[in-house]
């Protein structure tokens, strides 16, 4: 395997629920390399979380999820793998953290034991060594007074500290890729800044890839190398984060940026809501954003729009992107 090949490559991934009745993700391509941060951005229902869950096949039994396409982990397809084989990758090679750390931690065990359990199960670390390593991990993620905190129960910790514990658990087996699904959405901005700084520092040290799922475009500017904007189950724009944010080549990306309060040419504060609502589950023909797009014309609705290059490494799923520039 050569050094420049991506760690994770998602090709033409589609996920449907309830026996295909609800299409959540439709033909998504993503790639992420070692040490790289890719931000997947979108509103609720865009398919960003489903995409991340599909990588590790973390669907409930009752979801009736059907995934198609390829999920290549260092060249190996995870999608057709039996559950028992996939389990070897979960946590050890690819770890995931979620928005609500309270729901991911077991309320009846001290946090130290929960970290140690991961080490014992995945690495077979003996009990005493696992506790010592758990202590190191708590220190690494910036828990103050780890000797005392190691025996705390989740409810005794603040939201910010619980998220640090989740990161410690995720990092226990030194994964090569960390998937972070809205990890700071429930936290105060000051704590969010601490967690982002921590993730960046850990990434710089370990060289892990970071797949960051978020709804917050402003946050993307701070952390991501590349960005993929999702709408109605598809990636509608992807490219270097700084460039996509400065020169969006898809009307949806542009509209999302303009939803945030901004000053117009006269210095007046403006809010520009996107008219209508995103489609859910069943998508319109042609461009899925067309019903809400000011630039849409007849041809946009006629047939599916492919991703096309707008600049080097910058792609957009829009026929009329040049009008935006």
């Amino acid at each position: 395997m050569n050094a420049t090949a991506p760690l994770l490559e998602v090709r033409d991934l589609s996920v449907a629920f309830k026996g295909g009745a609800i299409q959540a993700v439709d033909g998504v391509d993503l790639a992420i390399g070692a040490g790289e941060t890719l931000a997947v951005v979108g509103e609720s229902g865009s398919g960003k979380s489903v995409t991340s869950l599909a990588v590790l096949r973390l669907f409930g039994r009752d979801d009736g999820a059907v995934a198609r396409g390829r999920i290549l982990w260092r060249g190996e397809d995870l999608l057709p793998m039996p559950e028992a084989t996939l389990r070897r990758y979960r946590g050890r090679e690819i770890a995931i953290i979620f928005q609500d750390p309270g729901a991911s931690l077991n309320p009846v065990f001290p946090i130290g034991e929960q970290i140690a359990e991961v080490l014992r199960r995945h690495n077979g670390t003996p009990k005493r060594a696992a506790r010592a390593q758990a202590l190191d991990l708590l220190r690494d993620v910036g828990i103050a007074d780890p000797e005392r905190r190691i025996d705390s129960y989740p409810h005794q910790l603040s939201g910010g500290m619980r998220q640090r514990v989740m990161i410690a658990i995720a990092l226990a087996c030194a994964p090569k890729l960390l998937i972070a699904d809205e990890p700071t959405t429930a936290l105060d901005v000051t704590i969010q800044a601490q967690i982002l700084r921590l993730l960046k520092a850990l990434q710089a040290r370990t060289g892990m890839g970071l797949l960051f799922i978020t709804h917050d475009l402003e946050l993307v500017a701070d952390i991501a190398d590349r960005i993929a904007v999702m709408y109605a189950g598809q990636v509608v724009e992807t490219g270097p984060a700084a460039e996509v944010l400065a020169r969006p080549a898809h009307p949806y990306t542009r509209a999302l940026l303009e939803c945030r309060p901004h000053h117009d040419a006269d210095g007046v504060v403006r809010f520009a809501p996107i008219p209508g609502a995103p489609p859910r589950g069943i998508f319109p023909h042609g461009c899925r954003f067309a019903p809400r797009c000011a630039l849409a014309e007849e041809a946009c609705r006629a047939s599916a729009i492919p991703l096309a290059a707008a600049a080097e490494r910058h792609e957009t799923r829009c026929r009329r992107w040049e009008v935006l520039a």
Partner: peptide, 19 residues
């Protein structure tokens, strides 16, 4: 510190310690 912590802030970095 609050302003500097806001995502996308252009202000000089000022990460508050602790909670």
């Amino acid at each position: 510190a609050l302003l500097a912590s806001a995502p996308g802030s252009k202000r000089p970095e000022m990460v508050l310690q602790g909670e």
